[in-house]
Write a protein that binds this DNA or RNA. Structure first.
Length: 806
DNA sequence: AGCTAAAATGTTTTT
DNA sequence: CATTTTAGCT
């Protein structure tokens, strides 16, 4: 046999052996190092694995697999040695293969863009599994979301397009209030044109890289759009003069930077030889443009996505980005990953049943080798309170019967409001849970106030934040004085803070107010000075103390409110302390960026043993053994405003597909006869998506057949709603605090004292009660206990903190 | 200026 | 239903 051929073929065998835990398509993707690559990856097909392994491969071996260069010095002995290497352990083999590496890329030349910071962290941690923690490979790699990566670029080069290094990011509510200010200034009535719709039109325009002028010229005779363009122009001016970027600007301005400044573009294009983008089906036009710019020189770009999982159209995502990827890059290699490793066959068939009703798909045939698995449970309940209780019952029973733990369960819903009823039920049943998304910790008033102080300290021209805190706590600078100062400031071309410093020069400001303004400026100066020589958490503590904010909170008369706010501020200090510890080079400005860009899901800890509740959107990319899908009703999911529009129904259907494909083993679908939303009772039909699941895969039951918890407790049911007294609701972790300590699930496991029927017991949350029944289940005992004030409960021996009383 | 209480109003999904 | 806005009062 030809020596060269044998050499190459054994080399490839070695690589195939090394990647033997991947399937052939996945390996193909890992080896496709150079040139444009499109991976169409179905749900659960191991795309994150491929992304990570491919990056590691590039750093370690470069294009070694494809290279047909045989070293001149190679001999038959080498081939013999290579054949022996086939029996090496994985780690040894990995190291052995480095000897074939061809033009490996330095880690700093790799850019990985993911959908969440968590996924980016995942890449880094998996790379560190291969190269070792804190190795150069891990630290040098650039991985992050579009937003965090762009912020990095803007911090480095933003000055070229007029942004100061410590620009701040304004969130949706900040930008809303700025738009509202602009509308007032232009005397546009907010009743005829809502701030929300203006904000969304501007945001969509920015997604498409449209400037105010572009929007105006596109408007034609459309009066509304013309008005919005006018507002957009004013809004953008104010953002820029205050050194602020909104979420859309972060992308759009980066594109502008790279378009207008060839030098910056060259630097970045030369640096990033390998670019990978995950969740490509949910990118917008600006993000497409950005990837084109960044990969413009080497064109080594890999994008991964699934057209069936495109669920962010409302945010400007264009599915065509992935459908037409090969039109933007010639010689695109396309690889389809169609084997699903996550779900049972039943679940996969159900998902396929749903998604097959969509038109205009690229079309994939997902398959699996796994077993049929359990049928999908579909259950109708009378109302949302019972829906929540049903979920709790299923969880309690499965835990003992099937040896599952709380963290194996996820409740996924369409809208955040749906979480409330379920939370109440979980709290009552003493099941540990955590809620992701919804109102965030950093949206709490007191947290936002303190963070606003930090913004003003960091970026003195941030007038939005200044307005928020200038009179909180009260210091005699009321709305009116502030308005006057703002007007003067814009007339004179100063920032408001600067003007306030010299307030006494202006006769329009009363002497009392100008004194207060000056004092305020001194306060801010002192704090800025303090911040320059102290850590973030020390600065925050100082802000709370010296602004009088802490005293203000301490004087709140209601005990619960006072304590909650105080503890939120303590939490803020603690979290900042964590940041100071973790960050390489902690700065106030980076801290503020992190606060703006980190989401709840990023902090989701899969090791915490608690049931997790989140929206289906947030659950994208995650997986759980058991998934509950409550509220599968027409009007809820699909939402009632989408029902008339076939295109939007398709998006909803993709969302349903995402929901179903999150589950590994089991799905419980529920819907209710009557649902209360915003004080109105709705009577919804079962969701059309449920009926798209082949009937033979499902088992349907109605409430009447599920008598277990309706028996023996008319008094409990007659209250209708389940009422949870906030003081005794079991809340394992404040729902606002993604960072806070893990749920207190480590309840006294040694507390396995056994109870007999009729025993009087005390529960830490439910108070006094009597044991009605006890059932052995696995290694545990399930008790039914009637409590004096809370009615009948099912409790698990090991988890319920029950104590016997005489 | 600043507080309280009544009235209005909103209905996805998120970086 | 729950939050935000506003009117009216001190």
């Amino acid at each position: 046999m030809d020596f060269e051929k044998e050499y190459l073929s054994v080399k490839r065998k070695l690589f195939d052996k090394y990647y033997s835990d991947l399937n052939s398509k996945q390996r193909e993707a890992v080896y496709a190092v150079n040139g444009p690559l499109l991976i169409l990856a179905g749900a659960g097909s191991g795309k994150t694995t491929v992304l990570v392994r491919r990056i590691a491969h590039i750093i370690r071996y470069g294009d070694a697999y494809n290279s047909d260069i045989v070293p001149e010095y190679a001999t038959g002995k080498d081939v013999e040695e290579m054949k022996k290497a086939l029996s090496l352990s994985k780690i040894e083999l990995g190291n052995y293969l480095t000897k074939f590496s061809v033009d490996p890329a330095p880690a700093w030349s790799v850019l990985g863009i993911t959908f969440t910071n968590k996924a980016a962290g995942e890449i880094k941690s998996r790379i560190s599994d291969i190269f070792g923690e804190d190795s150069e490979e891990v630290t040098a790699i650039t991985a992050g979301t579009f937003h965090s990566v762009c912020c990095r670029f803007l911090r480095m080069y933003g000055e070229k397009i007029g942004y100061d290094k410590n620009f701040s990011i304004c969130d949706t509510s900040d930008s809303k209030s700025l738009i509202s200010d602009c509308m007032n200034l232009l005397s546009i009535d907010e009743k005829s044109l809502s701030v929300k719709s203006v904000q969304s039109i501007i945001s969509r325009a920015k997604d498409k890289l449209q400037t105010p002028e572009d929007l105006l010229s596109e408007a034609g005779q459309d009066y509304k759009i013309k008005k919005v363009a006018e507002i957009y122009s004013a809004y953008q001016n104010r953002l820029e003069s205050q050194n602020l970027l909104d979420f859309d600007d972060i992308i759009m301005q980066t594109v502008r930077l790279l378009t207008e400044h060839e030098d910056v573009r060259d630097i970045l294009q030369n640096r990033y030889r390998y670019v990978s983008v995950d969740e490509y089906q949910d990118t917008n036009f600006a993000q497409l443009k950005l990837t084109l710019l960044l990969s413009g020189k080497y064109k080594n770009i890999m994008v991964v996505g699934d057209d069936d999982q495109s669920i962010y159209k409302f945010r400007g995502a264009v599915i065509e980005n992935i459908l037409n990827f090969d039109k933007n890059y010639s010689n695109t290699k396309i690889i389809r990953l169609e084997e699903n490793y996550r779900s049972t066959k039943t679940i996969l068939d159900a998902a396929n049943g749903i998604i097959s009703h969509n038109k205009g798909r690229l079309g994939k045939t997902l398959w699996t080798q796994s077993e049929q698995g359990e049928l999908i449970s579909i259950k109708k309940l009378p109302d949302q309170g019972l829906e929540g209780r049903y979920i709790c019952n299923v969880i309690s029973e499965s835990i003992v019967k099937d040896d599952l733990s709380f963290k194996d369960f996820a409740v996924l819903y369409r809208m955040n409001v749906q979480s409330r009823a379920i939370e109440q039920a979980l709290a009552k049943a003493a099941i540990p849970y955590r809620v992701l998304g919804g109102p965030r910790f950093f949206d709490r008033m007191e947290v936002k106030d303190i963070v606003s102080y930090l913004h003003v300290i960091n970026n003195p021209v941030d007038d939005i934040r200044l307005k928020r805190i200038v009179n909180t706590p009260r210091r005699g600078i009321g709305n009116k004085s502030f308005e006057v100062a703002s007007a003067l400031a814009s007339a004179e071309g100063y920032s408001v803070l600067e003007l306030m410093r010299n307030a006494k020069r202006y006769s329009a400001i009363s002497p009392v107010a100008s004194k207060a303004m000056q004092d305020f400026c001194f306060l801010i100066d002192a704090l800025r000075d303090y911040a320059s020589s102290h850590t973030t958490s020390e600065t925050i503590a100082k802000v709370i103390e010296s602004t009088g904010y802490g005293d203000m909170i301490g004087e709140i008369p209601e005990k619960t409110e006072r304590e909650e706010r105080t503890s939120n501020l303590e939490e803020l200090i603690n979290m900042a302390g964590q940041y100071d510890e973790d960050a390489e080079d902690p700065t106030l400005s980076e801290y503020l960026e992190e606060v703006a860009l980190v989401s709840d899901v990023d902090k989701y800890d899969e090791n915490a043993d608690a049931v997790v509740l989140m929206t289906i959107h947030s659950a994208k990319g995650l997986e759980f053994p058991v998934v509950f899908l409550p509220g599968m009703e027409e009007g809820v999911f699909p939402g009632y405003q989408t029902i008339m529009n076939p295109e939007e129904i398709e998006e909803e259907r993709r969302l349903a597909y995402v929901a179903v494909t999150r589950a590994k083993k089991r799905i419980y679908i529920t819907h209710v006869g009557s649902r209360m939303i915003n004080g109105k009772t709705q009577y919804n039909q079962i969701s059309c998506f449920v009926n798209e699941i082949p009937a033979e895969l499902t088992v349907r039951t109605e409430e009447e057949q599920y008598g277990a918890f309706t028996r023996n407790r008319p008094a409990f049911i007659s209250t209708g709603r389940s009422i949870v007294n906030p003081s005794d609701a079991y809340n394992p972790t404040p729902r606002y605090s993604p960072f806070s300590s893990q749920p207190k699930v480590k309840t006294s496991a040694q507390n396995t004292e056994e109870f007999k029927i009729g025993d009087n017991v005390v529960h830490s949350m439910f108070g006094k009660g009597v044991v009605l029944s006890s059932k052995r289940m696995g290694g545990d005992v399930l008790y039914e206990v009637v409590f004096e004030e809370h009615g009948l409960k099912k409790l698990m021996g090991t988890y319920a903190k029950l104590k016997k009383v005489k």
